[in-house]
Nucleic acid binder design. Structure first.
Lengths: 232, 232
DNA sequence: AACTTAATCGTACAGCGTACGAGTCAATCA
DNA sequence: TGATTGACTCGTACGCTGTACGATTAAGTT
């Protein structure tokens, strides 16, 4: 297993104490900073999609020149990595939950995971292609602990984790992708009806027209959990 | 659900009878043709990866000018769509299989699916982002029939299909992605050891170091099938 | 006052997808 | 036969991309 890395660290060593903005700014612009860059990149990605993120456009939104970004960031890929991880933070379930309800905890975490990615649809396609950031790793850590406490044998633990990972990734990239393509929903709908006439079984069950994504996600997750942790 | 489409049909109407290559070629080059373009695109993708596919480079390999491709193809995305679907054909299990072993059939088809995509690692990341080609649809059709015959209720059929789809897509994109990034395996390995020290549980189970991808895939698939079709 | 460091940005370059229009044949028609 | 058409090829050019490079500025530090 490996993390992609994209190399290229930014040049700046860490700022010591970022001396309070000593007044003077040419316009009302705040100064450039990594958090501000990342936050703006997320906004831009949300509104323009993955292809809409251009260094020049990002700089425009920040009120800076394009090349200024490269002081804070090694390259464009690093912006993507940071934006991705920033979107995957997890704060845990609301405190009222029963602490021993392992199944509820897993469902909550994975549902939240999916919801977070669907709020930023570009993130789904990105996740499996980039390095594992800290927020992703800590989700996996949490998943591992919970499954273990639910009685999954050590020998099956990795398989269980990856199965859930696969399921969430697959479901979310697929959903996000169909979301995007539904820009031209009307045409697509027709095209699919035409297509599926050659595929009678999936036509009959309306596989491609079924829009209950949320329901399908949680039902399928239930099935998977049934398989991973057989009921007594 | 929608298919992406990428619009842009190529201009040529279908050739009537592609008059047998009437001799004369400036070099020993064959003439351009859609199948040849697609096959060469697959070769190029295999050897150079997704980013390595450039129209100019593809034309070079074909011994033609870059703009000649646009007679046969609407745009680059169409090349990708065609290359993707061409790689996903399924010929069914070897004939010696028991015809009523639904579980074996599903495992065979999905394992073959994954294997095919791993033979062309660029395809995994592409699949969920592009339209559903005929080869993909016919796999879904087959899956649907088999599950139905295995006794999955109509009401659960779509959920079951999408669950398996999600699992295969997730497993394969993840695997393919880690494969690629293992170009710099040594560095990555170290980086991950460092990282996972902050995540004791997944460190203990060596989640990120586990290399038995094939085993994990088939075990997880078994678990999922257990959940989808409970044993009597 | 001299120097160092952090930060910004204008310019330039190579490479990309592809619009456009001019070219080259072979088959067909007059 | 000669003229015309349609299938196909390709050179050039355009706008856009990520980013290398060096100049510029401002804030500390000595």
């Amino acid at each position: 297993m490996a993390a992609k890395g994209s190399g290229a660290e930014s040049k700046r060593s860490q700022r010591k104490a970022p001396s309070p903005p000593s007044g003077r700014e040419p316009r009302g612009e705040q100064p450039l900073s990594l958090p501000r860059i990342v936050a703006t990149a997320v906004e831009l990605l949300d509104s323009e999609g993955l292809d809409g993120l251009k260094m020049r456009r990002l700089a425009d939104r920040l009120g800076s020149g394009a090349m200024s970004l490269y002081w804070h960031v090694g390259n464009k890929d690093e912006v993507l990595d940071l934006a991705l991880d920033s979107v995957l933070e997890y704060r845990g379930p609301a405190q009222v939950d029963a602490p021993d309800d392992w199944r509820g905890q897993i469902v909550h975490m994975l549902t939240d995971w999916r919801a977070g990615m669907l709020r930023h649809p570009w993130s789904a396609a990105l996740l499996p292609r980039r390095a594992l950031g800290p927020n992703i790793l800590s989700r996996l850590e949490r998943l591992s602990r919970t499954l273990s406490s639910a009685g999954v044998a050590d020998a099956d633990l990795n398989v269980a984790i990856w199965s859930l990972w696969n399921y969430v990734i697959g479901a979310t990239t697929t959903r996000a992708s169909f979301d995007l393509s539904d820009a031209d929903r009307a045409a697509a709908q027709q095209r699919l009806t035409d297509l599926s006439q050659h595929y009678p079984t999936i036509e009959r069950s309306r596989l491609l027209m079924d829009n209950d994504w949320d329901g399908a996600f949680s039902k399928g997750l239930d099935f998977l959990l049934d398989g991973l942790v057989p009921k007594p």
